[in-house]
Amino acid sequence: MSGFLSQLLNGLQYGLLLFLIASGLTLIFGVLGIINLAHGSLFMIGAYLAFLVTKATGSLWFALPVGIGAGLVIGAVLERVLFRYFYDREHLDQVLVTFALILIFEEMRSLVVGNDFYSVPVPAALDFSIPITAGFSYAAYRFFVIGACLVLAAALITWIERTNMGAVIRAAAEKPEMVDILGLDARRVHLTVFAVGTALAVTAGGLAAPLTSVYPNMGDGMLIISFVVVVIGGLGSVSGAFFAALLIGLIDTLGKAYGQAFAGSGLGNIIAACASMAVYILMVIVLLFRPAGLFGRRA
């Protein structure tokens, strides 16, 4: 039972991290109409940044604000220098430009830090476990990650749903030409959305660094699973991404944790394989019955 509870919490925490990545992806797509394959690399950059800052200062506490700040700056620079020229270009061009960015980011990571695995220490203040029941306790840092993600998610959703800027962003996602017609500054909207989306991915990397350690190409797996989240949640829908991310986090974690128990016999192996593929099976089901995603409006 306590094992199950721990997997449940792991799934929740994984799902919330996924949301930070997928929400940026879906927001950038929804408003800017651009597909950023390098979004996973931003997660990787965040993790390595956390590693470097923690190594230099001795604590992750400095790394998180640095990550948010650096994410905003990186996003703003990328948008100004590169992405804004690609809003109207074809999919193929966008795919290849962002693919090129992946190569460049990975090689720069290799230049600066090398190709080794590194672990990032959990901050001393959170390096303990919180007892939940008599026989079960759960790492405090993981609770912190859950809490931090929830705060960020709440802030993001409030920003989009309750503020003036958020209204403009929603308008831009719905009818881009209206933003221009109403005399709103589309440039500023683009810049802000891209910077925030980038900062979310970079921050997710920083939060995840102590949990997963940092390693080359760590963003690739996150990119793919975030795509699945966006497909299931509905392209351009932030609240859809939230529920889809939680769903996928739980299904993936539980499937991988308990699927292996069946392995051994012929049928058991199939069950085990299905359990580790559960996320993709979910995507197949969604595509069959709701091709626009669970929360998507447009077909």
Binding site: L96, A100, I102, L103, I104, E106, E107, L111
Partner: peptide
């Protein structure tokens, strides 16, 4: 740095 060159050329 093969990938760096490739990335820049692709861009």
């Amino acid at each position: 740095r093969k990938l760096l060159v490739e990335g820049v050329v692709i861009l």
